[in-house]
Nucleic acid binder design. Structure first.
Length: 674
DNA sequence: TTTATATTAAACATGT
DNA sequence: AACATGTTTAATATAA
C-alpha cells in the first residue's frame, strides 16, 4: 500500500528535513533537501563572492599591519640600540606573533570545510596533498631563509669591517622591499592553498563570521591591490632572479614604505640560526671567508647577480661580485638595517613556519587518526552526522561503529571543533547549504564518483549529482551500457551509503527520472527491459545549467591569473635559491601543479558548459576509468563483492543483506517501524 | 520576477 | 492481492 513511503518515509523525510530546519544546519548537509530552511540560509553565492573580497581585504590589512609593525619595531630597536654591532638576541623576539597568524588552513576553516557537505574525499585528499606540498615548500623556504641568515652574517661581518654610510631612506626602502618579498612569498603559499580551496568550493568564509577572523593572510587580493603589492615585490624579486634589469623597480617600494628610519641599530646575531654554527663562528673574517670555502656558491651571489636583498646588480664573475659586495654593501647603516630586517624576516618566517607545521601536523593527525579520538561532544557536526540525523540511523546503530572507514570519511568527523563557534549557530549563518552542483560539473561527475567511491560508499552523504546524472553513470559503468531498473537500484545502494535509506523515496525518484528524461531509453529485452542512455539527449539538456556560481568561477579564474605570476616567482625564487626540487621548467612544484591543474579542470568544466560540450562522456569518463578501471567489474548482478571495501559501518550493517536487492531499501529502522 | 530543472510525493497503469 | 515497473501530474525548491 502506502508502502514504506507512507508513514515511514514521511516520518523519515520529515525527520531529516525538519532536522535541518530545526536549527542544525549540519544536518542539512546530509539531508536531501535543504528545502525547508529556505529562509534562514542566505546564500552561498554571496558567501563565495564576499568571501573573496573580505579575504582580500583582510589580507591586505594584515599585510599592511605587518609592514607597520615592522616599521615600529625598527624604530624601537633603533632606539634601543643605536647602531652598534653588539649581538643581542633582541631581534629574535621582536617578531610579533600577532601578525603571524595563519597560513595554511586554520582549524576553524578546516572544520568549516568539513562541515560543508561539499567536502569529498577527493577534495580532502587534494587538500592534504596541498598541505604536504606546502609543508615541503615551507621547509625549503626555511632552508632558504637560513641561507639568507648566513648572508646576513656575512654581511654583518663585512660591515663591521667597512665603514658606514648613511642612506637611511634608501635603506629602509630596500629593507621593506626585501621584507615584503619574503612576506609575500609566504603569503603566496598560503594564498595558493586557500585559492585552491575556494576553487573547490570548500571554503566559504563569510564576512561576519567570528570563527574565521582575519586568519587568511593573503588569500586573494583584489587584483589592483594585489598587483600593486605584487609589483612591489616582484619587481625587485624578478629582477633579482632573472637577470635583474630593472633597478628602478626598487623605487616603488621605497615610496610607500620608507618611513621609519632605523638607521642605526645594533646588529644582532641570530642566536638560533642553525647556520650560525658554521658562519657565525667566523668572527671577523669577512665574506671572503665564505666564498673561500665555497668558491662557487656564495649565498649572496647567484646567476651572475648580486642577491643582496634589494640589489640585483649584475656581476660578471665572482670577483666582480666581491668587489661589488665590498663597495655597495659595505658596513654602513643601510646594510646594517637591511640585515636587521632580513633577520626579522627570517625569524618571522621561521616562526610562521613552525606554526604552520604544527598546524599541519595537527590537521594530518586529526584527519588520519581521527577515529581514534572521537571527540565527544561535537559529534553531530560533521557531514556524516547526517547519518545521525535520520532517526533511523541514530537508532539503528548509535554509532558504536566508528564511522571511519578507510579514508576521508574519517576526516569528516570534525572533531577538534576548536571553538564552539563553528557550531550550529555559526554554521547557520554560513549556510552550508547543500547545493547540488551536480550536473553542472559534468565532467567531474564520473571522476568524482570514482575518486570518492569509498567515501560515498561509507558516508551517508548525498552525492552532489542529480538523479539523472547518477542513473546515467550507473548505466554507463555497466559493461553493456544498459541496466535493468533493479540493477540501477543496486548500483545506487552499492555506491552510495546515502541511498541505503529511504528506498521508497529515491527509487521513486529514479523511476521518475527514467521516465521523465528522454535521455533514458527503455529497451525491451528478452528478459524484460533494460535502460540505456541516449548520450545525445543527455547532452542536450545540459547546456542550460550553467555550472557553479559565478563567484566561484571568478575565483578560479582569478586564481588562475595569480597562479601564473606566483608560479613563476615562486619557482624562480626557489630555483634561485638552489632549491633542488622545483625546476621552473618541470612545474615540479606539487602544490602549484595541483592548483594549476585543478583550476584548469574547473575552468574547462565551466567552459564546456558554455560550449555545449559533448564531452561529458569523454572527459568525465576517461578520468574515472583511468583512476578506477576496476570499478566496471562489479557486475550489477552481484553486488555483493562491492561490499568488500566498505567500511565497518556499512559492512556491519548491510553486508549481510546486501545480496538481496531490497536490503537497503528497508533500513530496518525506517521501514520496520511501520 | 520569470523560467527551467530537480526533487519528492503520489496517483495510476500494467504485468507477474 | 502484493509487488515491481513505468508513466504522469503536482507541489516545491533552487538556480539562472
Amino acid at each position: 500500500m502506502m508502502q514504506e513511503s507512507g508513514p515511514e518515509t514521511k516520518s523519515n523525510g520529515s525527520a531529516i528535513q525538519n532536522g535541518s530546519s530545526s536549527g542544525n544546519h549540519l544536518l542539512e548537509c546530509g539531508s536531501l533537501r535543504e528545502g525547508r530552511s529556505n529562509g534562514e540560509t542566505p546564500a552561498v553565492d554571496v558567501g563565495a563572492a564576499d568571501l573573496a573580497h573580505v579575504q582580500q581585504q583582510q589580507a591586505l590589512q594584515v599585510a599592511r599591519q605587518l609592514l607597520l609593525q615592522q616599521q615600529q619595531q625598527q624604530q624601537v630597536s633603533g632606539l634601543k640600540s643605536p647602531k652598534r654591532n653588539d649581538k643581542q638576541p633582541a631581534l629574535q623576539v621582536p617578531v610579533s606573533v600577532a601578525m603571524m597568524t595563519p597560513q595554511v588552513i586554520t582549524p576553524q576553516q578546516m572544520q568549516q570545510i568539513l562541515q560543508q557537505q561539499v567536502l569529498s574525499p577527493q577534495q580532502l585528499q587534494v587538500l592534504l596533498q596541498q598541505q604536504q606540498a606546502l609543508m615541503l615548500q615551507q621547509q625549503q623556504l626555511q632552508e632558504f631563509y637560513k641561507k639568507q641568515q648566513e648572508q646576513l652574517q656575512l654581511q654583518l661581518l663585512q660591515q663591521q669591517h667597512a665603514g658606514k654610510q648613511p642612506k637611511e631612506q634608501q635603506q629602509v626602502a630596500t629593507q621593506q622591499l626585501a621584507f615584503q618579498q619574503q612576506l609575500l612569498q609566504m603569503q603566496q603559499l598560503q594564498q595558493q592553498h586557500l585559492l585552491s580551496l575556494q576553487r573547490q568550493g570548500l571554503l566559504t568564509i563569510q564576512p561576519g563570521q567570528p570563527a574565521l577572523p582575519l586568519q587568511p593572510l593573503a588569500q586573494g587580493m583584489i587584483p589592483t591591490e594585489l598587483q600593486q603589492l605584487w609589483k612591489e615585490v616582484t619587481s625587485a624579486h624578478t629582477a633579482e632572479e632573472t637577470t635583474g634589469n630593472n633597478h628602478s623597480s626598487l623605487d616603488l617600494t621605497t615610496t610607500c614604505v620608507s618611513s621609519s628610519a632605523p638607521s642605526k641599530t645594533s646588529l644582532i646575531m641570530n642566536p638560533h640560526a642553525s647556520t650560525n654554527g658554521q658562519l657565525s663562528v667566523h668572527t671577523p673574517k669577512r665574506e671572503s671567508l665564505s666564498h673561500e670555502e665555497h668558491p662557487h656558491s656564495h649565498p649572496l651571489y647567484g646567476h651572475g647577480v648580486c642577491k643582496w636583498p634589494g640589489c640585483e646588480a649584475v656581476c660578471e664573475d665572482f670577483q666582480s661580485f666581491l668587489k661589488h659586495l665590498n663597495s655597495e654593501h659595505a658596513l654602513d647603516d643601510r646594510s646594517t638595517a637591511q640585515c636587521r630586517v632580513q633577520m626579522q624576516v627570517v625569524q618571522q618566517l621561521e616562526l610562521q613556519l613552525a606554526k604552520d607545521k604544527e598546524r599541519l601536523q595537527a590537521m594530518m593527525t586529526h584527519l588520519h587518526v581521527k577515529s581514534t579520538e572521537p571527540k565527544a561532544a561535537p559529534q553531530p557536526l560533521n557531514l556524516v552526522s547526517s547519518v545521525t540525523l535520520s532517526k533511523s540511523a541514530s537508532e539503528a546503530s548509535p554509532q558504536s561503529l566508528p564511522h571511519t572507514p578507510t579514508t576521508p570519511t574519517a576526516p569528516i568527523t570534525p572533531v577538534t571543533q576548536g571553538p564552539s563557534v563553528i557550531t550550529t549557530t555559526s554554521m547557520h549563518t554560513v549556510g552550508p547549504i547543500r547545493r547540488r552542483y551536480s550536473d553542472k560539473y559534468n565532467v567531474p561527475i564520473s571522476s568524482d564518483i570514482a575518486q570518492n567511491q569509498e567515501f560515498y560508499k561509507n558516508a551517508e552523504v548525498r552525492p552532489p549529482f542529480t538523479y539523472a546524472s547518477l542513473i546515467r553513470q550507473a548505466i554507463l559503468e555497466s559493461p553493456e551500457k544498459q541496466l535493468t531498473l533493479n540493477e540501477i537500484y543496486n548500483w545506487f545502494t552499492r555506491m552510495f551509503a546515502y541511498f541505503r535509506r529511504n528506498a521508497a523515496t529515491w527509487k521513486n525518484a529514479v523511476r521518475h527520472n527514467l521516465s521523465l528524461h528522454k535521455c533514458f531509453v527503455r529497451v525491451e529485452n528478452v528478459k524484460g527491459a533494460v535502460w540505456t542512455v541516449d548520450e545525445v539527449e543527455f547532452q542536450k539538456r545540459r547546456p542550460q545549467k550553467i555550472s557553479g556560481n559565478p563567484s566561484l568561477i571568478k575565483n578560479m579564474q582569478s586564481s588562475h591569473a595569480y597562479c601564473t605570476p606566483l608560479n613563476a616567482a615562486l619557482q624562480a625564487s626557489m630555483a634561485e635559491n638552489s632549491i633542488p626540487l622545483y625546476t621552473t621548467a618541470s612545474m615540479g612544484n606539487p602544490t602549484l601543479g595541483n592548483l594549476a591543474s585543478a583550476i584548469r579542470e574547473e575552468l574547462n568544466g565551466a567552459m564546456e558548459h558554455t560550449n555545449s560540450n559533448e564531452s561529458d562522456s569523454s572527459p568525465g569518463r576517461s578520468p574515472m576509468q583511468a583512476v578506477h578501471p576496476v570499478h566496471v567489474k562489479e557486475e550489477p548482478l552481484d553486488p555483493e563483492e562491492a561490499e568488500g571495501p566498505l567500511s565497518l559501518v556499512t559492512t556491519a550493517n548491510h553486508s549481510p543483506d546486501f545480496d538481496h536487492d531490497r536490503d537497503y531499501e528497508d533500513e530496518p529502522v525506517n521501514e520496520d517501524m511501520e
